[in-house]
Amino acid sequence: MNIFRFAGDMFHLISILVLLLKIYATKSCSGISLKTQELYALVFVTRYLDLFTDFISVYNTVMKLVFIGSTAAIVWCMQWHPVVKRSYDRELDTFRHYFLVGACFVLALFLHENFTFQEIFWAFSIYLEAVAILPQLVLLQRSGNVDNLTGQYVFFLGAYRAFYILNWIYRYFMEQRFSRWISCISGLVQTALYADFFYYYFLSWKNNAKLHLPA
């Protein structure tokens, strides 16, 4: 494992921990999109079906379980926790995420490596991950003001994607391995979705001002 891949994984882990910490410390989930969290839970469950069939490393297995568990915990808190659920911005979080699920599944039925149960769900999870952040970005845009932790959550997720791309470039040249085109295209789309957010995040950081997205 190279440093870019490890950094990417750590940013991914930190982003989820930031969310859990925010929910735990403030007993509030305002500004967080439940729909994005549900999509990520679905992404992890469908991608890590290989937990039952292949063993890669202890690191791999542990990280997969942590990703599934922590995302499930966030979804649970936002939906069922008696205090936390009251702060959920239900009326702002109206992105029709079932369309994303449907579209990604149809895409996976047509574009995949092999026509097997696992490969189709793997491709589905890659496509869905690329667009899963959309409900969160729409929610941030609607609420206008972004609190620090939610801003950092999206920032860390974007950093995770950026490091994964560096990881693919590194592996291409140093390990003579190429990333599958399904991952590459989806990864680029996913990273591009963050570009706009990064621009405003950088501006607010430079001006030392609160992050504010234009309507």
């Binding site: 292949d54 190429f178 991952s183």
Partner: peptide, 10 residues
């Protein structure tokens, strides 16, 4: 020769 990345990524 380049080989595809096996699914060892998260």
């Amino acid at each position: 020769k380049q080989d595809p990345i096996t699914k060892d990524e998260l």
